[in-house]
Design a protein around this nucleic acid. Structure first.
Length: 258
DNA sequence: ATGTCACTGAAGCAGTGA
């Protein structure tokens, strides 16, 4: 089963790329972040290509979705900060638990949103804790808005001491990973980390001045069943792109789901 | 060089968030 996660920065503005992506990458499950829509979510569009969708959206901001070509269990929405922000959606598909996560950006280090971001990470780790050692696959993917280390930043000096790269953010991400989550892109593929986000500003894409802030975290049980994974960087170079690239993984299904 | 994109409300542009 191929699971793909993408911060689309408005689902309605990205239908042309989603259609292309569904044909070329053929994901069984699509985890979306920043759908930026409430009731106008394009459910029919996904249906046309054989996907059912769970969506937790908001007008203008945030919004997470799970689309799948397999039956899905009902979705769980977690409002970790109690602000009604649509940032975490979870369900189970063919025995695999999947979650679409959009961690708050945090604005700036001296902004109140920064503390909220760290608080969100704390709640997220706590919620995910029981899934780590379960005898079931869990895949947690999305935009974490944190570049784990200097290797995840093309030009570290430009980001030193800024949001996405502060010590406290990196610590929060590292603490989550230390619970036992596999950082698929870094851990399994072993090569130089591909970036997942290039700002729209300043020709960042053209100069490959990116950051790796999107992740696909696998529980140990899922890690053992992972056959492939990667970052589909090419979508960042298409017309009217999202500023993020998708990340994906392929998992072997348990016999009872084949 | 506050540089780019997408949203909203309100009117074809300003403010916000990323």
């Amino acid at each position: 089963m191929k699971i793909l996660s993408w911060n689309v920065n408005s689902v309605r503005a990205r239908l042309h790329l989603l259609e292309d992506l569904m044909h070329k990458e053929s994901p069984d499950v699509i985890l979306l972040q920043e759908t930026k829509v409430l009731e106008a979510f394009p459910f029919e569009f996904f249906q046309t290509f054989g996907y059912k969708v769970h969506h937790w959206g908001q007008k203008s901001y945030n919004g997470v979705a799970i689309a799948a070509r397999f039956p899905m269990t009902p979705a769980i929405e977690k409002d970790f900060l109690g602000h009604g922000e649509a940032r975490y959606l979870e369900c189970t598909i063919a025995g695999i638990r999947v979650a679409s996560v959009y961690v708050p950006n945090g604005g700036a280090l001296d902004h109140p949103a920064y503390a909220k971001k760290l608080e969100f990470m704390h709640h997220l780790a706590k919620h995910l804790h029981p899934y780590v050692d379960a005898l079931q696959s869990t895949v947690v993917a999305g935009d974490f808005n944190i570049a784990l280390s200097e290797e995840d930043v093309a030009v570290p000096m430009e980001w030193e001491g800024r949001i996405l790269c502060s010590q406290a953010e990196r610590n929060a991400m590292r603490c989550l990973l230390h619970e036992g989550w596999g950082d698929l892109i870094q851990g399994t593929l072993g090569k130089k980390n591909p970036y997942t986000w290039w700002p729209y500003q300043g020709k960042a894409w053209e100069q490959n001045k990116g950051l790796r802030i999107d992740y696909m975290l696998l529980s140990p049980f899922a890690m053992d069943r992972c056959q492939a994974g990667g970052t589909s960087v090419c979508w960042r170079g298409e017309p009217q792109p999202s500023d993020h690239a998708p990340v994906w993984a392929e998992l072997r299904l348990e016999d009872s789901w084949k």
